[in-house]
Amino acid sequence: MDGNVFVFCETDNGKVVDISLELLSSGRKLAGKLNCKLEAIVLGNDISDIEKQISKYGVDTIHIADDSRLDPYLTLVYSKIVSYVLDKDQPQIVLFGASSIGRDLAPRVASTLQCGLTADCTRLEIGDHLERKTKVEYKDLLLAIRPAFGGSIMATIVNWDMPPQMATVREGVMKKEVFDKNYKSEIINIDLSDLISDEDFVIEVLERHMEESKVNLKEAPIIVAGGYGVGSKENFDLLYEFADMLGADVGGSRAAIDAGFLENERQIGQTGVTVRPKLYIACGISGAIQHTAGMDESAMIVSINKDKNAPINKIADYVIVGDLNEVLPKMIKSFHKQAQ
């Protein structure tokens, strides 16, 4: 396939967000393998320092629209601009973050362009695909790899006949790395004058603010749970940091809730909620039956405990004997190191 690799860069208060920087790094590698250029589309307000922000990730061309009407994000406005740029430049690959914005925008754009879109990828590779029916081999396709079917299978998705090949990618699975701090990008200003009109602004954002999501442990695929052994409410910050990185939720044993380390709604066990996540990471939880009754059907259990003989270790798949305040930072480090 011809064409370059494009990354849609999300901005927040004039700053390109992390997931987009991760995608630029990933896009840089794909462009390297395909021997093509890496281009970015950046829409926002007050983003004139964009080169300083993203050129170093190895971006060859930046398509930019800097306009007060582009903040806050509006689906119709953004999809019109992005569809226009992609239709004009005919890239072979387009990447979006699997964020609330990316997952709102990418499908609308894919529908406009009538192309394929693979959601929530955790790995991207370049490879070949042999079509069994026609025996035709397609070279150098984007292999978009994602969990499916409730996380019980990993599917590799390809699109050889309706370009561009588009994907949304989960935050935190690609590594963000500076490619060359002196890299120079060509800037292309997108002319909005004939592109967007009043009818694209029919949806009005009245209010927006930070607000914690309601806790829903039952549907969490990964749970990081803490017990009395965590020691303090402050020590739970480390569990939250770790959980954020994994896209996990935080829960706790009754002892941790009674000690005031966590809200009631996060209690797991007989008197709390019963959970069956894909992965349960028990930190400083001894594993009284009242607790294990609410989590022993987890598909995979990791126990971090100073006590090698803690009852929970009997049902765990991995047991790390040690202090969680040392183990968790090491796990975070290890994850960053080994994630793609």
Binding site: I153, A155, T156, I157, N159, D161
Partner: peptide
């Protein structure tokens, strides 16, 4: 447009 290339359990 999207087709399955491979499935791993």
């Amino acid at each position: 447009p999207t087709k399955v290339n491979k499935v791993e359990s």
